[in-house]
Nucleic acid binder design. Structure first.
Lengths: 157, 157
DNA sequence: TATTGTTATACTCTATAACTATA
DNA sequence: TATAGTTATAGAGTATAACAATA
């Protein structure tokens, strides 16, 4: 117990870190599985949401928004065209460009996934007292802030 | 303000969910970047840790432990042999099998990554008062428990 | 006959470089 | 000359099915 007391703070941080890592893993698994049920991968869902928010967009714009190469967007759009989520429409004023546009199915799936967030939040958090939620929001906010700083710092170097 | 008050609990859950999702994304990015600096991918690091914990293991065992196909393990071991993290050693009693074994480099990198967890925990959490940490551990524990149940439930259906 | 690992094939995400059509 | 998107090529993760060697 003495050693445990001495290492208390580090142990506690380690325990919280373990929870954060496990949570990240579980969220990723759950999300990937849910998207697969909708016929999507994470990369394609990302593109779907981007188009849903912006409206029809060129592949260059999408590449920049997603942080991937233009070539990669070609592949994603190819797949999502074959599976009926988007179409390539001619750009009205630039014949080099195409406008990636949602199909009715793509729009419906995007809306359904966004709506599903509420259910997900309930499954994770319903029944927790407001005080408990507030604590979590505070603590997570702090941790997320530090993570953002870490990632930004490493991205810069 | 009235509508805001009425939707309070759902809003609060939505806010916490956003934090959880952002945290999962940031952790994943940071981890992927860190592993890349060590010459590893997530899949290869997973295999590395598994071998570090178990000692030399057959590819079948590793496939089961990682939850991937045996064929996939062949590819991972091929890559990690080429990059000097592991070797294939003959199984002493079963000439069909190979024992995936860490090289000195593989062992060193595994130890370095495990040690790096402490620094990561500090970067994320150092300076937070013990009470704050305890709250976080409680809240995250609850959320992780529910996530585990969710994933298990979906995996079963 | 069952198991271990590999070859064969295929799909997805990712990247760079070279090329075409258009600005 | 610069830009949009594609073809070409390549590496990594993932899967199933067929096959060899061995149990």
């Amino acid at each position: 117990m003495a050693a445990h007391d001495r290492d208390g703070p580090a142990d506690q941080r380690g325990a919280v870190l373990d929870l954060v890592l496990e949570l990240a893993l579980l969220v990723e698994e759950d999300m990937t599985a849910g998207l697969a049920r909708a016929g999507l991968t994470k990369a394609r869902a990302h593109l779907l949401f981007e188009v849903a928010q912006r409206g029809p967009a060129t592949q260059q714009v999408l590449a920049a928004a997603l942080g991937v190469s233009p070539r990669n967007v070609t592949g994603l759009v190819d797949g999502m065209t074959a599976t009926g989520f988007v179409t390539r429409e001619p750009h009205p004023r630039d014949r080099r460009a195409t406008l990636v546009t949602l199909t009715a199915h793509g729009r419906a799936v995007a809306e359904r996934l966004v709506a599903g967030r509420g259910e997900f939040a309930d499954a994770l958090l319903a029944g927790l007292p407001a005080a408990r939620l507030a604590e979590l929001a505070d603590g997570l906010g702090e941790v997320v802030g530090r993570m953002r700083a870490l990632v930004a710092q490493e991205g810069a170097s």
